[in-house]
Design a protein around this nucleic acid. Structure first.
Length: 211
DNA sequence: GACCAGGTCCTTG
DNA sequence: CAAGGACATGGT
């Protein structure tokens, strides 16, 4: 990664921080974060909230419950998030993996971040973003979440690093602190929502932040 | 009706 | 290894 990318990133993060300040994001216990991380794949957060409420009301909003639930019941509960059959399958894969490998979510707390990350990635349906969301927002680790918005917005500020290197770039730019990681990723998504970033965004609107 | 949402996996060229 | 398609509901 280049020195100029680092510098641009520092400027961008400062601008976002001064715009949004303290924001809290993705509350809920670790089980809920893990479930939400899968449900939010290619879905709006409002729908995820609805699905989580349905799961809670049916006693299915925990890894333990999901691991022993009928797949049809899970499908029915998460229908509103789209891709409901594949997401139900992914939820059960994750739940089964946690129960079989660790016994419980609590038992995962002492696993080193790098090990836990690799382990999560081995579960079918959990990719980089989902794994990092779980690590950062569920287990309070310093693992930065890179999503489509991050790549898009940083490109708008002149940072043309490939997606795979953005994670390292962000992690070297930020203080090694979970709260900083949470907030910065949240800033990016809030900014994206606020300015309705579309797939074909090619104009740099972020410059307005520093001006 | 068209387009898209805080991705991931599998198949092709 | 990059590109393209599949997965699916609900909001604008």
């Amino acid at each position: 990664m280049s020195v100029s990318s680092s510098y641009k990133l520092q400027t961008t993060v400062r601008a976002l921080r001064s715009r949004y300040g303290e924001i809290s994001w993705w509350p809920g216990d670790c089980d809920e974060v893990m479930i939400g991380a899968i449900l939010t794949q290619q879905a709006r957060w409002e729908q995820v909230t609805r699905a989580l409420a349905v799961l809670r009301s049916r006693g299915l909003c925990s890894i333990a419950a999901l691991s022993s639930a009928h797949i049809r019941d899970i499908e029915d509960a998460v229908r509103c998030t789209g891709f409901f059959r594949i997401k139900a399958k992914r939820l059960q894969s994750l739940a089964a993996h946690v129960v079989n490998t660790y016994g419980s979510v609590a038992a995962m707390e002492h696993v080193p971040t790098a090990v836990l990350r690799a382990d999560l990635l081995s579960v079918n349906g959990i990719g980089e973003e989902t794994a990092d969301s779980i690590l950062c927002y569920g287990f309070s680790r310093t693992s930065f979440v890179i999503d489509a918005y991050t790549e898009k917005i940083l490109r708008c500020t002149g940072i043309h690093e490939p997606r795979w290197s953005l994670k390292a770039l962000l992690e070297s730019a930020l203080p090694c602190d979970n709260q900083e990681y949470r907030k910065t990723h949240a800033y990016i998504v809030e900014y994206a929502k606020e300015f309705c970033i579309k797939k074909r965004c090619d104009t740099c609107i972020l410059v307005n932040l520093s001006g």
